[in-house]
């Protein structure tokens, strides 16, 4: 395995190990997101058709907002000494971006795996004809959010207003991701093709990957 991938995987492994111990994502963000899904119906008239219509929008909103919380976990935020250490170890900043993205991606997919059954259970939306068709869209959506969360987290590292600022920076830029994923679902439900929306997701992920690679070196200097 090349040095680049070895480093990227080590970073991802470290993040997941820390998450395994600290449990901030699985133990706190996830139940909080599930709670949000549960509370929304209580603010409606309770009509079954309204809830069925709300299922998808609530799902996308909750995965976007709580996905950001997941990507920006306080326990995954590196301190200045930790980052300085990695810089001096010769950690490739792009490998770091890839590693951080990978770990966030895993967690975001986990978030979706928990939220989908909950939304189906509590909202009883119209069944999707071929749910498997949504898998690529969900994976690309999570990947984009993971990159965006990594970038926003690095941009705001060490700032006092970080908790609110990072999601605020990421959310408007996440619109093409939400759009691509949500419209894929609508298209599948209607029996239409999803090529356009898949291409939008791929293009957005590629753009974010380019942004991540281009900004990796200047972002590294925020550590020092």
């Amino acid at each position: 395995m090349s040095r680049f991938w070895r480093q990227a995987l080590q970073v991802a492994k470290r993040d997941l190990l820390v998450e395994g111990r600290a449990g901030e994502g699985v133990g706190i963000v996830l139940p909080f997101g599930a709670l949000a899904v549960f509370v929304v119906p209580l603010a409606t008239s309770g009509s079954a058709s309204l809830l069925a219509d709300l299922a998808a929008p609530v799902y996308w909103l909750v995965t976007l907002l709580f996905g950001m919380q997941l990507a920006l976990r306080q326990t995954a935020t590196e301190t200045v000494p930790q980052r300085r250490l990695l810089v001096l170890l010769g950690l490739d900043p792009v490998a770091r971006f890839v590693g951080r993205t990978l770990s966030a991606w895993v967690l975001l997919i986990g978030l979706q795996l928990v939220l989908i059954p909950l939304v189906v259970l509590f909202y009883e939306p119209e069944p999707v004809p071929t749910p498997a068709l949504m898998l690529p869209a969900l994976a690309l959506y999570a990947l984009g959010l993971a990159m965006l969360g990594t970038l926003a987290g690095d941009l705001t590292v060490g700032l006092r207003t970080r908790t609110a600022l990072a999601p605020m920076l990421a959310a408007p830029l996440a619109v093409p991701l939400v759009m691509g994923a949500s419209q894929s679902l609508i298209s599948i439900s209607r029996g239409e093709g999803i090529l356009t929306w898949t291409l939008l997701l791929v293009a957005t992920d590629l753009a974010l990957a380019v942004a991540g690679v281009v900004t990796a070196r200047p972002l590294e200097e925020t550590a020092t």
Binding site: P172, V175, T196, L200, A207, E221
Partner: peptide, 28 residues
Amino acid sequence: ARRSAILGVIAVVQVPLVYFSVVLWRTL
């Protein structure tokens, strides 16, 4: 200066896609 310049660059890459996705949403 550094952080905002980086965000400026990320925005350049992403804003056209935001615009494009909304247009796509309407046209389709």
